[in-house]
């Protein structure tokens, strides 16, 4: 029950935004719709451990920092790909690299996979069965070990802080 309430709050806010105006009536209607929308997907959310409102609030500054870094990385990624696209001779060395990750929870893995896709020159293709290796397509794969260390040091640190 607490879990339903917990996940309904962001859904209710989202309902307000989709409706276009944040009012108390819209929020309450969203809270009523939330559990109905959540019901079919609840078996997927077996996160394990106890959820607490306090824990979620403590993480907000770290998540804000993560999103700030994400926005900078997205802009860098776009400029990089744009430069490749408009250069007269396309000179790239693409390839798929296996990147080991430390993240264990479903939310953390989703976050890091999406972050890798939105950051410069990398695109997540798949995850191994034991959830320890991500297969990442790189637009410049001439230095596989460099890509691995840059993902580990630059991105995963912030994802671990924000989502685990």
């Amino acid at each position: 029950m607490k879990r339903y309430l917990f996940y309904s709050i962001p859904l209710a806010l989202m309902w307000c935004f989709v409706h276009g105006s944040v009012t108390i009536e819209n929020f309450i209607f969203g809270m009523i719709l939330g559990p109905i929308a959540l019901r079919p997907f609840m078996p997927l959310f077996k996160v394990g451990g106890e959820l607490s409102f306090k824990d979620a609030i403590v993480r907000i500054p770290k998540q804000a920092k993560y999103f700030a870094i994400l926005i900078i990385e997205i802009l860098k990624a776009n400029i990089m790909v744009a430069r490749i696209v408009i250069s007269p001779n396309i000179d790239i060395k693409p390839g798929i690299i296996a990147v080991p990750i430390d993240t264990k929870t479903n939310g953390g893995i989703t976050a890091i996979a999406n972050t890798i896709t939105l950051t410069p020159g990398t695109l997540t293709i798949d995850i191994s069965d034991d959830r320890s290796v991500l297969y990442v397509h790189c637009i410049d794969a001439s230095d596989p070990d460099g890509v691995r260390t840059s993902i580990k040091n630059d991105l995963e640190k912030y994802v671990l802080e924000a989502f685990e």
């Binding site: 790239i92 060395k93 693409p94 390839g95 798929i96 690299i97 296996a98 695109l123 997540t124 293709i125 798949d126 191994s128 297969y135 397509h137 794969a141 001439s142 596989p144």
Partner: peptide, 21 residues
Amino acid sequence: GRAAHRHGVDLCDISVIDEYD
């Protein structure tokens, strides 16, 4: 990307590495 690789779409000729199982 995952579906393409599983359907056997190969990487282009200038690709240098493929560690995907």
